[in-house]
Structure formats: structure tokens, C-alpha cells
Simulated scan of single mutants.
Amino acid sequence: MKAISRLLPAIGLLFLASSSIADDKAKLSGNPIFPGWYADPEGTVFGDTYWIYPTFSARYDDQVYFDAFSSKDLITWEKHPRVLTAGAIGWAKRAMWAPSVVERGGKYYFFFGANDIQNDREVGGIGVAIAESPGGPFRDHLGKPLIDRFHNGAQPIDQFAFRDADGRYYLIYGGWRHCNIARLNDDFTGFVPFPDGTTFKEITPEGYVEGPFMFIRGGRYYFMWSEGGWTGPDYCVAYAIADSPFGPFRRIGKILKQDPAIATGAGHHSVIHVPGTEEYYIVYHRRPLGETDANSRQTCIDRMEFDEKGLIRPIRITREGVPARPLK
């Protein structure tokens, strides 16, 4: 009996340790990370909170608002419905796509595409809205599109607001297999021409289709984009690296694509970098197996890692997602 009584504390500790391990394993985001059809997600960090701003994935005529999602740990997500609606934007009627949100001077600026214009005679393009909170409500900042024309062949969609190391902001955007970069002015109401007098510089790499994203790591510029057709299983993400946000960007290869055992059409992504760490997450959309509707897309998250040369390792899309990661 004495031997058994001596073992009981050890058994108890072992049980607690096993329970703790099980709890840790249970604390995974899962994929998708929140319910509903959402695509083109931009993930970012404001203060101690993660935010994701996706496209509402539906027929173009039904895409007249944006929802946002926030989390303290990448596991539990709070929905913020209709942070921006077409009703707040006098010129936006449909096809509101691909948000990009940045903070400057205590204000939050929400860049978006609307109306899916096909030529310079149509009303629409890229707009910008403003709010006092990352959860909105956002209101029109200009009363008109920021970009309403095709420059260098780029359809004005899929905008990404990029902050360079020197504090300057650029808008990187473009569909129809062309990508431009333009320097934003201080209040995000227009652009500052480059020294050569041009405003829109083309930085299109080989294979580019849409969905640009850029970040800096180790003093180098990682430029990422989507390839393939957004309605098909071949949708994917590729990247390049350069010493400048203007390139030249030479394609390195694909790092995100479908897994026929899990999901198809993995693409149009963004990257969350945990401040002060070497931790990176890729946020993207994909289509569940068996879904044939092009708009049946879900937002997912997985880890993104680098090799010893700084190249992005191929990403394995998962059903499990990622562990909890509270921000300090």
C-alpha cells in the first residue's frame, strides 16, 4: 500500500502533463479559421490584435460590403460585420474586392477595388476609405476612385498598401497580368511622381496574374503574387526577391498550391509577421473539395518558414491550421 501511495503523486503529475499536452494540441485554429465564404484575405497586426480583412465571396452584384475579423491569439475570431459598405461609397456598385488596411497618424485607411471596370470609360477602380478604428465604420476618403484608369495595362484591382523601411507608402496593384507600383502622398489622396516624372511603374514578374503582396526581411524585398485562374484548381502563389521595391523581380517559384487531398485553388494571400520575431504566417483562401461554385472560397492560415538562404520553404496546406499565438 505504501508503494502505491508513493506512486499516486507521480501518476497525478503524469496525468496533468498529459492533459496539458492534449490541451495544447487542441488549441489549433483549424482551417478555415472562421465560417462563411471569404476570399482574398489581408492579415495584419494593429497593437495587440490580429486583423483579417477579406472579400465577401459571392456573385459580383452581391459583393457590396466587407466584413472584418479580429483575434488576440489566431484561434478565436470576432466578426465585425459590414465595416465598409457600398452605401458609404457613392461610386461603388458591385464587385468590392481585396481590402488592404493600414494605420497612419491614428487613422485607418482601407483600400479596395470596386465595379470590376473593363476600360477607362467605366466608373470604378481602386478607392480608399477612412475610419478612427480598425473595425470601422469606414467612410469614403475621396468621394471618387483613387485610380480609375488602366496604366501599363494593369486593371485597377487587387491593391496592396506597402510601408517601406523609410516610412514611405506605396500602392502595389494590378490585374490582367500587369502589376504597378505608385508612391502615395502623405494623406493618401493621390500620388507623388517618381524622379523621372512617371507615377505608375510596372514591376510585373514572369507568371504574374494578380494578388500582389510585399514584405521586407533581412533588408530584402519579397514580392509575392497569384498565378493561374482564380476559378480553377491551379490557382497558386509564387514569389521573387529583390533589393528594391521596384525590382527587378525574377520569379523563384511556387510556394503555395492545392493539395488534392485537402483543398483546391489555394491562392490570393497575405502574410502576417509577428512583430519582433521571425514568426510568419500565410493567410490565403482555398476551395473545399467537392465545391464547384467558383465563389465557394474559405479563409485559411498556415505557417510560413524560410531556409538558411532566406528562401521561402514550400507551404503545406493543412486542416489543422496553427497553434495559439497571443501577441505581447
Rank of each mutant, 00 (worst) to 15 (best):
A3T: 10
L7W: 13
L8W: 04
L13V: 15
S19V: 14
A22C: 09
A22N: 08
K25I: 14
G30V: 07
G30A: 06
N31G: 05
P32L: 05
I33S: 04
P35C: 00
Y38H: 05
F46I: 00
G47D: 05
T49P: 03
F56E: 05
S57K: 03
R59P: 03
D62R: 13
V64F: 04
K72N: 10
D73N: 13
D73W: 06
L74M: 08
H80I: 03
V83G: 02
G87D: 15
G87T: 12
W97G: 06
Y109C: 00
N115W: 01
I117M: 09
D120S: 11
G125M: 04
I130Q: 01
S133K: 02
P137M: 04
P145W: 01
H151W: 12
N152K: 09
R163D: 00
Y170A: 02
Y170Q: 11
Y173D: 03
C179L: 08
C179D: 12
I181H: 08
A182P: 08
L184N: 01
N185Q: 10
F194L: 06
P195G: 08
D196E: 10
G197H: 11
T198Y: 01
T199G: 07
T204A: 03
G207H: 11
V209D: 04
G211S: 14
F213A: 08
M214Y: 10
F215D: 07
I216D: 01
G218E: 05
W225C: 07
G229P: 00
W230S: 14
A238M: 07
A242L: 07
D243S: 13
R250Q: 12
K254V: 15
I255C: 14
D259M: 10
T264Q: 13
H268W: 12
H269K: 03
S270T: 02
T277P: 05
E279G: 04
Y280F: 14
Y284A: 07
L289E: 03
L289V: 06
D293H: 12
A294I: 07
M304K: 03
I312S: 06
I317T: 13
E320L: 10
